[in-house]
Design a protein around this nucleic acid. Sequence first.
DNA 1: TTGTAGGCGTTATCAT
DNA 2: ATGATAACGCCTACAA
Lengths: 353, 353
Amino acid sequence: MLPEVTTIYDVARRSKVSTATVSRVVRGGTGYSAATRDRVLAVIDELGWVPSGAARQLASRRAGIIGLLFPDLLTSDSSEEDSPLFVDQVIRGAERAATSAGDAVLIAATRQASGRQLAFSVASKADGLVVVARSLSQADLASIADRVPIVVLAGRVGRRKFDYVAADNRGGARTLTSHLLEVHGYRDFAFIAGLGGSPDSDERFAGYREALTGAGVAAPEKPDAEGDFTETGGRRAMETLLASRPRLPQVVVVANDQMAIGALAVLRAGRLRVPGDVAMTGFDDIALARHVRPALTTVRQPMREMGEVSVRLLLERLANSEAPRQSVVLPTSVVLRRSCGCQDPPSVVQDVA
Amino acid sequence: MLPEVTTIYDVARRSKVSTATVSRVVRGGTGYSAATRDRVLAVIDELGWVPSGAARQLASRRAGIIGLLFPDLLTSDSSEEDSPLFVDQVIRGAERAATSAGDAVLIAATRQASGRQLAFSVASKADGLVVVARSLSQADLASIADRVPIVVLAGRVGRRKFDYVAADNRGGARTLTSHLLEVHGYRDFAFIAGLGGSPDSDERFAGYREALTGAGVAAPEKPDAEGDFTETGGRRAMETLLASRPRLPQVVVVANDQMAIGALAVLRAGRLRVPGDVAMTGFDDIALARHVRPALTTVRQPMREMGEVSVRLLLERLANSEAPRQSVVLPTSVVLRRSCGCQDPPSVVQDVA
DNA sequence: TTGTAGGCGTTATCAT
DNA sequence: ATGATAACGCCTACAA
């Protein structure tokens, strides 16, 4: 026995009005008497009718769905704890912004090859897409963009062609490094980067260099070591660093928290004290950063807010496709803890201008 | 200038075939020559046509969308780190299972009052729903269920009416408590519960009691203190416990990790050694549990797997609505670390039968 | 192998 | 204030 869904026709017939009137009533439009409204509403309730999303979308060209595309971060061999919380937070933020506007969020992780097809599939179901950087090739991005509006999330500041929102990675790294220079007086630095070519890592390295250069400290062209954003990767990078340098730097600036935590483990295993022998900083302010010993000085990105703002931007564009392109760079903030050498964790959060 | 989306008619005209043939080709059906296929495919590519999800759903009664409803856990005042990772993991799992079946996941958090409407909205857009326990009233659940298939996630084992998947909370708590009794020989216990009436907390308490009773240890009818699943809540509950008991129990069994971590902080502040003066255990095995000092003995729920299995169950029902109701209870496992008194963290994972 | 045409459940445009 | 009736873009018997 088939579900036999009730349709707008059933409602119309039973309340002795036309489907047009039913439609008006449910959408809160105008043009019907209070009596009609009550009658229709009663019948709807009685029949338990729920308008078909598909039919609605087809006729009104509005699905009430925001697509969110992100790169698959929990692939095969990366262990549970390596899976970044970044996307989770972004999802939460997006969900919140969308829901409060009456929309829902359709999510899909693009895994390597299958990404293209998935992206199109999602695009065909949503009114617009929020695409987290690096989850799609530029070509695919462009070809989808001329079907539905797109907002790009994260990625390098300065991208064109689309609306985008990003965190001020560079500014955060710059402020953090300045703190290291000015407050602690460090002069001998080392930098552990994330995956080569990652916009986030690059931006952070750039900010780091800007601060060093600005302080008259020689800054190398390239990072001293490179990991892959995971704890394991950080461990390896730290080992490489240790092996390649004759003597310890005063401070190691790491491109993200997870790698910093891995690096911390290596130092601990080598009986090196942090921040006594070497200071260290991370980036992201994941929950762990606060709990690890020593607590990790880091830079916080407003991940949830990034998700929210992306959706908001998208909704704006949906409402007005002619509006000028917008780009929002959200401020990051430096979180001072023990690992950089600060005493008695002030837990102060220092905003980046 | 309007987007002027290209439709199947454009493709048909340009490749000089009927829309039926285009449809056959794109869906990989049968009944066309290789030459025709290539020609159509070429035109599709040239025109950049993407079939409309809405039209497709309307005609085929299949949206390719799985809805996921969960309670809003990051409300207002709860701080960032208190937001549970449970749902995040479930989302990941669901996304993975759905994507590999060619579907996408539509997510929505039900916030208090608005829940009902949101749920219906999502139901109207999806082929089926995975509903995380407590995100909807029984009445709403029922009224949605006779429109689309529903799978209930988590919640108490033993529910009827719907397909459901749950973790073996009771078994996990029982095994954990038995370990405490048998290996460590503890006899004086205390239990910190989560929110009153939470099925998860109740089940865990039940398992705890079963083990105690089975070992001939008197088990109180009610938990010794109650928190709200957050770190802060755990802190408060521990303070209450401390204030209300003349002397320390040998071990405190806490209903989840976050509260346990809060409780740990209280003990540390009181200069009490864990597990020296009091032993402690958590539940969930969040990432932090491993990094906190002492590392927390806890019970792991296969959160991601729960998401995956839910979607799989839903897809099965979508394929065959007549199949008998299914319920899957996934095993939990005890993770032994320092906080319960175990030496030299064996990091052993002990499966629950 | 290919085409024709009706139907899917709403919305929206005209009338009335 | 209400009602007919085209779209909307695709799928799918049924024919050819």
